[in-house]
Computed example of a mutant assay.
Amino acid sequence: MKRRLRALAAGAAFAAAGAVGTTSAAADALVAGVEASFPPWAYVEDGEYKGIAIDAMRAIAEDQGMEVEFKDLPWPSLIPALAKGRIDLLVTGLNITQERNEVLDFSIPWWENDDEVLVAEDSDLNVVTALCCGATVGAQGGATQFQWLEDNLAANDDVGITLRSYEDYVTAVEDMGAGRLDAVVTSTDTAEDFIAKDRPVKIVGTIQQNQPQALAVEKGDPNEILGKLNAGIMNIYESGQWAEIVKEYSPQSTIRSIPTTMPDYVDAYEEPIPGYSD
């Protein structure tokens, strides 16, 4: 299977196994866009990329004989960069939605998530008062949590919240600690990661979403890598490597069966599914 390989300018990409920003990309490497401030899925520690999605992508690449380089981009620019072919795939905790399906193709889903309402550890707010009646609520701009809050709460004058957009959830939680936010709404695994790392926050409620998450490629899969991603996902899952990666970064998480729920509207899931059905 041939694909068009994209050379990268030296210094513009990051080594998959090395220090961030210190190694130029190999000419035959796939460029994987990440948001490196989204624990436990992708983040930087001691100059290296770490996280569930990072280690899983490295394992998939090794399993399928691919080379991959990670490129850190702000969340709002990741999907447009992939849709325009500036990166080859998107590797992070990406929720599958109908809107995103218009411009991206998804791998088989490897995770499902709900959303959690976080408040400061010493806050008296509950799940109702944190999301109404003059509360200021933060979420990541462009994320499904922000969209849900905007559509269901901020647009309703009777609810009365002020919604603030953040580039990443780390900054949002820091702002809440400084008293500039009453609550932050984020995914379950990210909320649990903040608590596991002793951030002074607590969960006061869950918004049931059952959002499937997956890797993504450019619409139409011009590089013909979707089948390899699907096959690699299944191989690391069936070998137990996926469970080891998840437990390393999120020991409190339950390992879900892969694939998780496949939404009917995702055309890349039509039979036969590359790398999965065959």
Rank of each mutant, 00 (worst) to 15 (best):
A120N: 10
K228C: 04
F106I: 02
E174L: 13
I236N: 06
V31R: 13
G227Q: 07
A268Q: 04
V34W: 02
A143K: 03
W148V: 01
S123I: 01
K71P: 10
Q252V: 10
V31A: 12
L94I: 10
D114K: 02
I60S: 04
T190K: 13
L153K: 00
A17C: 10
P222T: 02
R180T: 04
I255Y: 04
A191M: 05
Q147N: 14
L73V: 12
L226N: 03
G179D: 05
G142H: 03
V266N: 02
L149E: 00
T206Q: 03
T162I: 05
A231K: 08
D189T: 15
G177I: 02
M234L: 11
L5Y: 14
Y169W: 10
P251K: 00
A10L: 12
A56Q: 13
L181N: 00
E99I: 11
T254A: 11
S253G: 14
D278G: 08
D221V: 03
A26M: 13
D198F: 08
N113Q: 15
V128M: 12
G179R: 03
Q208N: 12
D221H: 03
I54P: 03
G232F: 09
E102C: 06
S24W: 13
G179K: 03
I52G: 06
I54A: 06
S77V: 07
W75Y: 09
T97A: 08
V127L: 14
S257D: 15
M1D: 10
I87G: 01
D198S: 14
A130T: 00
S24M: 15
T129F: 01
D122Y: 06
G240Y: 08
P80D: 00
D198P: 05
V103A: 05
I79W: 03
I273E: 06
S37W: 13
L82T: 00
G179C: 05
A191C: 09
N101L: 11
T190S: 15
I87L: 05
S165F: 13
K197F: 14
L90R: 07
W242Q: 04
L125K: 05
E62N: 09
I79M: 04
R3T: 08
N235I: 14
P274Y: 05
N235Q: 15
E238Y: 15
A135Y: 01
F194W: 07
N230C: 07
A81K: 01
G220Y: 07
V44G: 01
G93S: 11
E62A: 15
W41G: 15
S123M: 02
S187E: 10
L131S: 00
F70W: 14
L181M: 01
I273D: 06
I161P: 01
P76A: 05
A231F: 06
V91A: 09
Q145G: 12
A9C: 14
T186Q: 05
R86L: 11
A56F: 10
S277N: 03
A9I: 09
E48D: 13
R3P: 09
V68T: 04
W110G: 15
F14P: 12
N235T: 14
M66T: 08
V204M: 03
E224T: 14
